[in-house]
Design a protein around this nucleic acid. Structure first.
Lengths: 216, 216
DNA sequence: GATGATTTGTACGTATGTATA
DNA sequence: ATATACATACGTACAAATCAT
């Protein structure tokens, strides 16, 4: 019934391992090694690699195997810029296309996050943050845009620092940015929604980029 | 030196076959069948399929093989809308980021296409058209955006009707739209460039969509 | 609904190419 | 530069799942 293949299972596990940081960027994945580890033959491993490559999580060259994608600061900045533009686009479209119900739900999500900010519940805030962004992606009524953003976010997740919310005032700042965004979307102000989202994503990306540059 | 594998060669051939329409949307690709046709075993065929899937040209389900992607009008409209937005973004960025040399080259390309319009040389116009768009993608200085657009265009190419330029006045109209676009980019007018590109892509997509709806 | 034919998924052995000494 | 070692690319055989009858 559930056409679940060994390839798929291994893909899911490798995917989690990469995103969680268990397997690090730049690390090489050897077919035999992983085949042994998961008790399978090399063939489904190759199939799993194909899916990883499809997701943009690894790069592969002929006769040189696959390695987890390693992004430099320039590439990250490039991707964050694109993400900011795409999400801003979605926000603008949402402002003109969301149904009344969707706007109310957006408002409610934002209000829920206020509680999380007050008690500094980072986990909950991060979760609601994701829901807010998802709602706006969906509100754009454009599946292609949604998919592009989803792909980008997956690739960037390798370098996401969830604890960045711990940075002084980041939770409050993020909430304030959401406020502008949500207000603009709900009132149907397309330009304002676009600007608010671009500003919001830019700020959060800056946090990550600053951190990575300081590391180096 | 050139890490050219059998998989790659077969991928390229299948890719051309699909884009040229030799293999049609909805058609199923059987491993053994294609293996026989190209005189190879099933393994490299599967690798080629993985690349096709990666390019978004086919869809694959477990135990059900791969089939060439079949898009309905809604999906096409969705993709064209996204394409228009992404290209418009690029145009806006190009207006603020292109070097002096790039602006001159853009101008020259556009002037070259004028000759093609006058003698109704569709082939040449189509070629220059591609070069103009590529120049603008590159001028945006954002690789991620460029790649997203490139991927989208590849998927849409399945349904592109190159002869649409034959439609009465489409060549002249397209040239006029380019004029607005090029002027805006060269003068550094970001908003104008964005609008001009969005308008241009919308118009060309309409041609394809109208045709497909009439077919049905 | 069960059965046979067909097709895909998996296993493993061999060959070829790349990178090291 | 040549040779050796090792990982990947390819081919073939078998197992499992799907579809049609």
């Amino acid at each position: 019934m559930a056409g679940i293949t060994i390839s798929d299972k291994i893909y899911n596990q490798l995917c989690s391992a990469i995103i969680s940081g268990e397997i690090k960027p730049g690390q090489r994945l050897e077919e035999q090694d992983i085949a042994d580890k998961y008790g399978a033959s090399r063939t489904p491993i190759r199939e799993a690699f194909r899916l990883l490559h499809n997701s943009g999580l690894v790069e592969s060259k002929a006769h040189k195997g696959v390695t987890v994608i390693e992004l430099n600061i320039e590439q990250l900045a490039d991707m964050y810029e694109a993400l900011a533009e795409l999400e801003a686009l979605c926000a603008g479209l949402s402002a003109t296309r969301m149904s009344v119900v969707e706007r109310k739900q957006l408002q409610r999500l934002h209000e829920q996050s206020k509680l999380a900010v007050e008690v500094e519940d980072i986990e909950t805030f991060a979760s609601i943050n994701n829901q807010i962004h998802s709602a706006i992606h969906m509100g754009s009524r454009n599946t292609t845009l949604e998919q592009s953003i989803s792909t980008l976010r997956k690739r960037l997740s390798l370098y996401r620092q969830p604890w960045l919310f711990k940075k002084r005032d980041r939770l409050e700042t993020s909430f304030a940015e959401h406020q502008q965004l949500v207000d603009a979307v709900i009132s149907g102000n397309q330009e304002q929604a676009t600007l608010a989202m671009k500003n919001h994503i830019s700020n959060t990306s800056m946090g990550t980029l600053d951190y990575l540059m300081a590391q180096k």
